[in-house]
Design a protein around this nucleic acid. Sequence first.
DNA 1: GGTGATTGGTTACATATGAAACTAATTCAT
DNA 2: ATGAATTAGTTTCATATGTAACCAATCACC
Lengths: 163, 163
Amino acid sequence: MSDSKPSDDPVAGGPEKLSLGDFLPYRLSVLSNTVSRAIAADYDRAFGLNIWQWRCMAVLGETPGLTARELAERTAMDKVAVSRAIAALETAGHLRRETDARDARASRLFLTADGLRTYQAIIPIARRHEQALLAPLTEHERAQLSDLLTRLAHAAAPGEGLW
Amino acid sequence: MSDSKPSDDPVAGGPEKLSLGDFLPYRLSVLSNTVSRAIAADYDRAFGLNIWQWRCMAVLGETPGLTARELAERTAMDKVAVSRAIAALETAGHLRRETDARDARASRLFLTADGLRTYQAIIPIARRHEQALLAPLTEHERAQLSDLLTRLAHAAAPGEGLW
DNA sequence: GGTGATTGGTTACATATGAAACTAATTCAT
DNA sequence: ATGAATTAGTTTCATATGTAACCAATCACC
């Protein structure tokens, strides 16, 4: 597709303008940051956890016994962030490491009883935030949104096109 | 609406689970960060600008003569970030300040000729990124997305409900 | 028209974050 | 087997970011 829309014509004549408020990356950023900050403040207030610690717990709650590397993959965090998050969770008593039987470099990670309790306590809070956010959308619109986001994520995936 | 979906029932019996990959705030965060980082790398490579500097330029390109405070409002940045961004842009020669006639505390901000040139040069890059991101969506879907994001942003606005 | 509260903007400080260097264990090729 | 290259995870260091403290000018109002 070599395009056609007149108003986008890159060499129209007058100098180009770009309205920040309509620019998708900007809109995503503002929305995401607003949401994340509100949630982060909540987790911190209630449990002294930051977003990354919570992400690790969320994944380990679902899938115990992952290594830090696997955790990094599934949380879209880099390994340094994971290392710090799990170190903090460990000293807080929320998780425990078990050196992997075959590979002494790696540890398998598990939530402790305490961590599991906290995990269970956070879930409803997370859900509440998500519901508040989705409140104005119908069920059908939520499905649409989910689908659109999936496709955007695919387009944005590193390795695709201009990214 | 006091709800009805069975699978969401908060007190069902078994321990609750939450799949991070389906959690909207997480999905937004990952998508937004992926996009922002790719763009930021590009701006930096090509013009030595970071996202905040670019945001300021984008708004001043459209609306010259704003004060730092006004700029902060329109870029969803806090005043410290704006202060730093415009200081950097000034030393880089991209913008110039003009002390406001009536209020000696404030400065009106303008892109210099050089800044304007850079601004014009960046716009197509920004557009290209946006287009790459939106590539998989039809025109109609883009409109849907825009609408959905507007409504989410409204729901997430500080001051609304649980936020 | 002078004094306390506000506001525009910057600075200082403490914390968060990411890149790269590093250690230790493992694998691969010979 | 043995050494080079790879991988798991941590530490270091330099930079980015947010909060709170801070000046200076303006406003409110008596």
